[in-house]
Nucleic acid binder design. Sequence first.
DNA 1: CTGAAAGCGCTTACAG
DNA 2: CTGAAAGCGCTTACAG
Lengths: 335, 335
Amino acid sequence: MPAIADVARLAGVSKATASRALSGRGYVSDETRLRVTAAATKIGYIASPNAASLVTGRTQSIGVIIPFVNRWFFGEVLEGVERALLDAKYDLTLYNLTFGGAERDRIFEFFLARKRVDAIIAVSVELTKPESDRLIEQGKPVVAIGGWIPGSTTLTIDEVAAGRLATEHLIHLGHRTIAHIGGEDAATEPLSVHGQRWRGYRSALEHAGIDGSTTLAAMSMPGGYTAALQVLGDPRQRPTAIFAACDEIAFGVFLAAERLGLEIPRDLSVIGIDGHEYSEMYGLTTVEQFPGDQGRAAVATTMTLLDPHDDTVPPPHTTMPVRLVVRSSTAAPAR
Amino acid sequence: MPAIADVARLAGVSKATASRALSGRGYVSDETRLRVTAAATKIGYIASPNAASLVTGRTQSIGVIIPFVNRWFFGEVLEGVERALLDAKYDLTLYNLTFGGAERDRIFEFFLARKRVDAIIAVSVELTKPESDRLIEQGKPVVAIGGWIPGSTTLTIDEVAAGRLATEHLIHLGHRTIAHIGGEDAATEPLSVHGQRWRGYRSALEHAGIDGSTTLAAMSMPGGYTAALQVLGDPRQRPTAIFAACDEIAFGVFLAAERLGLEIPRDLSVIGIDGHEYSEMYGLTTVEQFPGDQGRAAVATTMTLLDPHDDTVPPPHTTMPVRLVVRSSTAAPAR
DNA sequence: CTGAAAGCGCTTACAG
DNA sequence: CTGAAAGCGCTTACAG
């Protein structure tokens, strides 16, 4: 493994000059720079990030905290983050943060304390007070996507507005019995993603002066399936439309409707939120969001925060765009 | 940020002794060790991995190369790997390797050359010769899951046997027209996962002396849906059973069957491979595999390879278990 | 514009 | 069992 001393020797300069030529920091004559870079490529020199980190304090690596990896939203965010980080020549260190447990403490007490990462991108994590304090006191930038961490820069869609938009679409089609199937944390955590979508639902209903009913489900297709069987099972009080808090829940509603012999949209309208890659195949009307873009935007913000020459202070919160996509799963109710 | 010198001072020993006491390497009296560890916890000392790496050459970090993150198999593997790595106090550096492109070259030429990781776990990546050479010449252990890299330790299920088992299940139920919907690389890459499953299918059919027909699809639910519409569209030559190369394709077959008014298993039997988390909800018969276990096993192998005190040479290839789970999607054909 | 020197925070022979 | 010293591979003031 060639070291910078080898490059310097070959180029006939000191290590200091070689370092300056290679990093682009400090003055070096063009001629010298050329000689150094030529020498470096000739012997296949690649700087040791460890040695550099030791003196600069920078690791060229970003920690990503994420609760799941194989749910659509999270996977998309992660891929977007990864791609953008690669472009910025940063490494991605992954912390799959499940809820609670010794494992979780270990991530905060040990891994994130190791000075291994320059900044943290937290995806949909609700942090406890000690956890967020710990992050802040590290003095490292923390950027949050799809969740809220006090003291950190946040990028999310307007979840309340998304829930309201989905519900209003149904109301405008003429529906008056609109059930909601929401994520199970909607009830306990009003500030959670599903809690906020639920509030959007409530507000649209109240504005229209109609009642609703909410059923909680695991945030997955089986969760939506089980909940929908329950919601649709009694023919005497079956809603004409369902607002599913996310597309995966909506897919479960499709399966339940099929098994109950209900035709969509004739017997039931269904709308979701997400723009999941399968929504088109299902013909699902949905409020589309763009998690890959959110991931890339989070990286851009992180880079701004990390750039010593950039004094831009990013706004504490950025609202990311959504778009209503009307497909064949919603229609006016049968009369 | 306290350094080891601070710990040493507080405990009244030299840095060398503090280092030995904390790392557990080398002789230290019990009494000294206690004093040192007490001092370390008191001031919240955490060793700088960079400084340690510089002298030991070890980074305590493993690179994971993976083509997708939000396909079920890959997500499960990744979660299993992450969990096991955390337990071993290793960091996980993620490289989301898409097919081809400058990005891919950059991962091999730059990121993996940076001496940032102690070993590499490659998930379902087909490497080109220069790529695998480059990995090998780094001298870092490479462990492969669900794919084959010459010169590296490999853990996979027996894909051919899995395909054969799925097909035999259908044959034994009495089916004689069994279509296969396989991943699109089955045709071009005989050694790919889907190529091998297809060979298992062929071999079972040949053994039973019956013909088959194969349709290629994207390895996803929409892929399976589109292909199944094609396979099932013509009522005069509709098969009585479909072997889907993976569960996500099988789910697409379910949707296609529904839209064509076909009832499973009365009109059509369907079997998959994977044991996807949704397979139970669908009632899908499948050959289950355990990607989380595969991920954990890969980490265990990596740790063995990395342990200087462990001379165990892991076998070049380990076959991971599968299990046939019969649910309601397969039955004898209507006569 | 360039070089000599110090130092980042550890670990590891080497003496004792 | 412990300590003084060297060194891992860089970068960065500081002179010149």
